[in-house]
Every structure is written in structure tokens, then in C-alpha cells.
């Protein structure tokens, strides 16, 4: 679950295009560092794919900068996403802009967002520094902050795990990165072969018992005289 800071990186990549406010003591002194709030909903399905919906509300100035950077070519967002979610396969990327309320909604599906690690266990990577809180068995949330050239971006993640998930916990993988680990029983196997085998074994056992265990109904001595 590579839920990383794509917006921060995008901002860093196009730092040239967003006002350069940090340079020069004048600009730095006049403007309070802005805090940009983002909400990212991540809905994971039973095979580790996830649907991401990233909703960002911007100030008037930020909206102008955003439109300047991406307005004419929103496919740039796709390229940036692909760079920063290398370990997933992206599809169904879409962007809607609500100009009246200065809200952009970027959504995409990331295949292989979480990975099956065996014994019914799955694992998804979290951003560095994430401390996820359990809201319910299938809902986890956390907020991470990223400094950028203009201030701070605070991104709140809402992770919806598949139905039937149990035992979810935040852990560390072998490289020390934070991960969200959960158990989802594997229902892909059919019980029919096991049932057939059980019935067959029982049948053979009973049949064998019918031939082997003890004599058939004993004959009476009188009948033997005839």
C-alpha cells in the first residue's frame, strides 16, 4: 500500500511553477506558511487492489497555481503518480475540478497496493512516520505532514480494508518501513474435494468392516440339520 506523498513530490517537481515564495526574505516575511489539507480515501479489495480518492481544497491563490500547473495538461498528474507509485500498477485515473469551490478530486486504482505474504496475511506499505489508528476492524486512519517550499501539507488517510478482515495491526517490514498488516481468509479453495475424499474413506472403511468384522448372522443348529 504505497500511500505516499505524491502531492508533495509533485509540488517539489514543479517548484519552478508555483511562485518560489520561499526565496527572498521579503516573501518569506510577509506570508505565513500555508497549511494545505488533503483527504485521501483508500479502499482496498480482497485481492490487494485499491481505489484511491484524493480530495484537495485550495485557497484562491493555490487554485490559480494549481490550474496553471496542471490545468492545460492534467495528464502530468498521471505521470507524477506513476513516478511515485512505482510499485503499483495504476489504472482508471480521473480528475474532476470543482472550480466554484476550488476542490479537485483525483482518483485512481492501484493494483498490487497490498501484497499477499502467505497464510492469509496481507501487507501494505505506509508512508514513513505514519502512526495509524484503528477506528474499526476494517477502518484505519492517520495523518502525515510534509514540508514543501510554501508551507506544510497535511494529508489525512482513511484506509478501508476488505470485509472479513481481522487482526489488522501496524508493523514494520524487513527494511524497517511501516506497514499495515491484516488477515483475510482465503476462500478460493473449494471444500468439495475434501468432502469427496472424506466420504470415500468412510465408505471404504465401512465396506471393509462389513466384510472383515465378525461372521455374518449365525445359523441355528436346527436349520443345519435340514
Amino acid at each position: 500500500m504505497r500511500l505516499n506523498r505524491h502531492m508533495f513530490r509533485i509540488a517539489a517537481t514543479v517548484v519552478a511553477g508555483i511562485g518560489f515564495a520561499s526565496f527572498g526574505p521579503t516573501a518569506g516575511a510577509q506570508n505565513e506558511p500555508r497549511v494545505q489539507l488533503e483527504d485521501l480515501d483508500v479502499t482496498v479489495d480482497a485481492v490487494g487492489n485499491a481505489r484511491f480518492v484524493d480530495k484537495v481544497t485550495r485557497s484562491a491563490m493555490e487554485w490559480e497555481q494549481y490550474k496553471e500547473n496542471y490545468g492545460g495538461n492534467p495528464s502530468l498528474l498521471k505521470r507524477d503518480l506513476q513516478h511515485h507509485y512505482s510499485s503499483t500498477e495504476l489504472r482508471d485515473i480521473s480528475l474532476t475540478n470543482d472550480d466554484m469551490n476550488r476542490v479537485s478530486t483525483l482518483s485512481w486504482t492501484g493494483d498490487a497496493t497490498t501484497e499477499y505474504i502467505g497464510n492469509g496475511q496481507w501487507e501494505g506499505r505506509l508512508p514513513k512516520g505514519a502512526k495509524a489508528t484503528k477506528v474499526s476492524e476494517t477502518l484505519w486512519e492517520f495523518t502525515v505532514s510534509y514540508p514543501d517550499e510554501q508551507g506544510i501539507t497535511q494529508e489525512t488517510f482513511h484506509i478501508h480494508l476488505p470485509k472479513g478482515t481481522r487482526g489488522a495491526e501496524q508493523a514494520q517490514n524487513e527494511t524497517g518501513d511501516p506497514v499495515l498488516r491484516y488477515t483475510l481468509p482465503d476462500h478460493t479453495g473449494s471444500p468439495l474435494p475434501w468432502l469427496a475424499m472424506l466420504l470415500g474413506v468412510l465408505g471404504v472403511a465401512l465396506l471393509a468392516a462389513g466384510f472383515v468384522l465378525g461372521p455374518a448372522t449365525p445359523r441355528s443348529p436346527g436349520a443345519a440339520a435340514h
Binding site: S190, L192, P193, L195, A196, M197, L198, L199, G200, L202, G203, V204, A205, L206, L207, A208, A209, G210, F211, L213, G214, P215, A216, T217
Partner: peptide, 27 residues
């Protein structure tokens, strides 16, 4: 009793074959 055992065994084996066949047809 031996008769019952034999008949039950045959029935279970038949059931096993039926379940196995159903699995092969629907797997």
C-alpha cells in the same frame, strides 16, 4: 449388522464419487 455396514459403505463411496464428479464439473 454386516449387511448394514456393507450397504452404508457402498452408499458413502457412491456419494464420494458424486461429490468428486460435481467438483470436477464445477471447478
Amino acid at each position: 449388522a454386516r449387511q448394514v455396514l456393507r450397504v452404508s459403505g457402498v452408499v458413502l463411496i457412491a456419494a464420494a464419487i458424486a461429490v468428486g464428479g460435481a467438483y470436477l464439473l464445477t471447478r
